[in-house]
Amino acid sequence: MRPIEFEILLSLAGGARHGYAIILDIEARAGDGATLETGTLYRALQRLAEQGHVTEARTPPGEDDRRRYHAITPAGRAAAAAEARRMAALVDGARAARLLPEAP
């Protein structure tokens, strides 16, 4: 799984969002100065949709109905969890190798 795809799934794990909200969430998580281009986001969304990890959600009442909301599917949640575990194992390995300090 590509980092951008994991980022999107992570963002959607908290609830359905539209594209701009996903960008804001990812940029906020990544920290100051990090940017994500619109084209990159939607190419990744296209891949995730093809893999069945993301699906279109109903636009919440009161929101701009031109916006399309995206939600994570159970398969997407499972894939994101697997990726998170893989990453956690990597972090554990890094700690064991003293590349990172011990967890508090």
């Binding site: 539209h18 619109t38 969304l45």
Partner: peptide, 16 residues
């Protein structure tokens, strides 16, 4: 691709 995502991409860019 444009047919599926084009409108939303325009909207997102406009928001940004």
């Amino acid at each position: 691709f444009r047919a599926r995502w084009g409108d939303e991409m325009r909207l997102t860019l406009a928001d940004r």
